[in-house]
Amino acid sequence: MGIETNSIYDQPASRGSQLRAALTWAVNTSPTTVRSRVDANRQGVAGWSMGGGSLEALKADTSGRIKAAVPMAPWNSDQSWPEVTEPVAIVGGQSDSVAPVSSHAIPFYNSLAGPKSYVELAGASHFFPNSHNPSLSRMIVSWFKRWINNDTRFTTFTCGFSGSAISSFRTNAC
């Protein structure tokens, strides 16, 4: 499901709370047709721009239900995430001037304690999630299938990002 933030000025911690609230709504109070298709014990979060909000959601989740995250072009004033042990795939844009990867995505990746991957899209600006991008789609779907569904068949698809569309790839999860 997708959410709209309360304000474009919300900070990452607020966005993380909003992501967790959306998951709680889907599990507990959504219409029955939605609720009947939701597995309360297998949840994931993703976010763009202040995609660091997905890291905030993982950090604040005490239920253990949020199993994985994919922050895209993440920004957060908190640069260190050693308390996050769930699987995280960070996707950054090589030419992101809003949340430069050297100041945000890469330090976030380096500080994470659990399974992690970092994909940097060659030449991509901060707005790469607004356009069709097969590498981004591959990472999001494969990462969630691998870590939320615990389907190891998808490990192959979360590994080995290379080619002209990728400027950097690193992982400890392959």
Results as ranks from 00 to 15, higher is better:
residue 90 I to D: 05
residue 146 R to Q: 12
residue 166 I to P: 10
residue 18 Q to D: 06
residue 27 V to W: 10
residue 95 S to Y: 12
residue 52 G to W: 05
residue 125 S to T: 15
residue 115 P to Q: 13
residue 93 G to D: 08
residue 76 N to K: 03
residue 169 F to T: 04
residue 7 S to R: 14
residue 127 F to I: 05
residue 116 K to Y: 14
residue 30 S to Q: 11
residue 35 R to Y: 05
residue 115 P to V: 07
residue 16 G to S: 04
residue 110 N to V: 05
residue 65 R to K: 14
residue 149 N to Y: 12
residue 148 I to G: 06
residue 148 I to H: 02
residue 5 T to W: 12
residue 128 F to K: 00
residue 158 T to W: 00
residue 129 P to H: 11
residue 28 N to F: 06
residue 69 A to P: 04
residue 89 A to G: 05
residue 63 S to C: 14
residue 169 F to D: 06
residue 136 L to E: 01
residue 74 P to E: 03
residue 31 P to Q: 12
residue 154 F to P: 07
residue 90 I to K: 04
residue 20 R to G: 01
residue 160 G to N: 08
residue 80 S to T: 09
residue 46 A to H: 02
residue 120 E to H: 07
residue 58 L to E: 01
residue 98 V to N: 03
residue 58 L to W: 02
residue 21 A to R: 04
residue 156 T to Y: 08
residue 47 G to A: 12
residue 75 W to P: 00
residue 167 S to Q: 03
residue 104 H to V: 03
residue 169 F to K: 02
residue 143 W to R: 02
residue 16 G to V: 02
residue 84 V to L: 02
residue 97 S to A: 07
residue 89 A to I: 04
residue 140 I to N: 09
residue 136 L to C: 04
residue 96 D to T: 03
residue 107 P to M: 08
residue 151 D to L: 12
residue 159 C to E: 10
residue 93 G to S: 08
residue 165 A to I: 07
residue 125 S to F: 08
residue 160 G to D: 03
residue 28 N to Y: 01
residue 165 A to T: 10
residue 42 R to D: 02
residue 15 R to Q: 09
residue 150 N to F: 11
residue 81 W to A: 07
residue 26 A to Y: 13
residue 45 V to S: 04
residue 134 P to W: 06
residue 61 D to F: 00
residue 118 Y to P: 06
residue 48 W to L: 09
residue 165 A to C: 11
residue 36 S to E: 14
